[in-house]
Design a protein around this nucleic acid. Sequence first.
DNA 1: GAGCACTGC
Length: 717
Amino acid sequence: MSEGVSFNYIPKPKSHGDCARGFKLSSGSPMANLPIVQFEEKIIETVEQNPVVVIIGETGSGKSTQLSQILHKHGYSKSGAIGVTQPRRVAAVSVSRRVAQELGVRLGEEVGYAIRFEDRTCDRTFIKYLTDGVLLRESLANPELNQYSVIILDEAHERSLNTDILLGLMKRLIKRRTSNLKVLITSATLDGEKVSNFFSNCPVLNVPGKLYPVEILYSNERPKSYLESCLKTALDLHVREPEGDILVFMTGQDDIDKLVSKLEDKIRSLEEGSCMDVRVFSPPPANCRRIIVSTNIAETSLTVDGVVYVIDSGYVKQRQYNSSTGMYSLDVVQISKVQANQRAGRAGRTRPGKCYRLYPSAVYNDEFLDVTIPEIQRSSLAGTVLYLKSLDLRDIDILKFDFLDPPSSESLEDALKQLYLIDAIDENGLITSIGRTMAELPLEPSLSRTLIEANEYGCLSQALTVASMLSAETMLLPGRSKNTEKKRKQEHLDLPDGSGWGDHIQLLQIYECWHQTDYDIDWLKDHGLQVRGMKFVKDVRRQLGQIMQKIAKGPLDVQTSRRRRESEQDYYYLRKALCIGYANQLAERMVYHNGYRTLGFKPQVVQVHPSSVLEPDDEGKLPDYIIFHELIATSRPYLRTVCSVDIKWVMPIRNKFSNLNINKLSGGSGHIDEDTNGKLSDSPKKEVVTGTAEVQDDRDSIIQAARERFLARKGKK
DNA sequence: GAGCACTGC
């Protein structure tokens, strides 16, 4: 390549013997050729004698479709249903369809599935596939899950937040439930011992797969630029290797776009006839090789048929939460060994394949973590802790809840603090009646709290809309690409602007506009909004409305008659409800400029994201106080989706900050920060100003920029 | 003036 980097691949030493492997699904008769079927007797025998069994089998080894059928065949569905959880909706639907087909029954009768918005089960259903989130909801209504005789937690190795909560609940349930319960945990990787230890050394069964080998090749040095080495490797492969599609794993949209355009350039310049023709991201004509450049979405969620070669950059973009700052960050990090093997396995689904790892084997062996850090250790746990509190597990201290991988005490205390600020728990850490209602809502705690407060102010209808829009946030605007960029900007001018109050109000206004067109699909397309996303919003809104119906004090319908957008009073109560709901996500503007400081956490200086529609006043100043939906560090720390709030609503919240005692909140078991004597330090910090002149310049330029932005937008109206 | 991976109730 241009850098002249020598880049040779050396075969992986045989001694390790952990080649990733793919597996061919039998497409013929039901249960034919599936390795798991040979283990039927062994499985039944083990389940008979043990309440919990761990089953290790490669993805696609048949465990997802066959385990439930084997248990049914041996009478386990007589005393209750067999429930099988899946981390993803599509999996719940497709696997249940397959099982219904194999048993020769109609989907939704004896075999069914339940996912959000869609329950295709009935009284006769004895095998039920469901997402783990749905099972958590069911366990809220029926903590003993008595409708099930067997619960199978499938794909537990993915360690989704919901699966981890379920693992803890199952451990407790098998000891406490009066009627018999069998729990099966399936995993594709070899950390069965850990799960077994967690469940009092329960037995682990290994189910081998009928697998295609994947040859692993490592680079002999760390690439200077992994984009360049992806490019070089893909081209080498394309010229040298026989037919078969190439799957490249990269970290994000930008790198993918760059690589794709470079590939197109290079391949166009290759001599005609020297290689097969290549198309990227288009249906493959005969005798064509596809090169698919993807994020980790292709690890699990998306399966591309025909992939024989995998190129693994060794990196992934991962979101993590810092509980001391309340800030998420999106970082490019090294993948884990499990993830690397999952990627390699994508090369061997249809025949023997090859995986090119763009890193030396020493990096894999010495630097990669064995497993990906589970989501529960990378997330804000306010919602999780509220959920557990609402289950009333009297015998269990939430801070000592038995997780397979417990989150840090700091993270749990952060969750308690946040829940206290939004009135979900009282000063002793006990769940309040507000908290109970919040736990019933499938929303982040801040939004649940907003709905309840809005109900008191008579603006529940508006709050329902805002919460629903935020639930679909990422699905609303079409994916950015260079061609649609300009177009989208023009379209945005036609959208409402939040009347200057910020993004929550804009989201509300957008939905109200759509409502006024009688949910016209063309209106969405004309305004650059995703149809699928907005339909999702409508579904969420209906679901939230049903839950709130029980306590609603006013109408839930979208408002149509009111057209007075200019009145300040229009959104007064909605913004007030948002302020109460987002008491844990509040920021105060710096005295000298338009930066903000977060309240209630170790103070962070942050900026409102430039895409926000929040408007400064005539002097170019942004509001003194705002609430934010998300605080995330990308190139800098940004507040995304913000709304202006009034100082007089903020003052009672500041009082709560100073009354906060984490030791009491955590029932006496919390650790006390000596500096703050158990209290949150939120006394107004003196702003450190060095070099007054520079600060002055900074202030002027920031305010000037804000003003110009504001004027530019006004002018275009 | 930035541009964020994935999933779920």
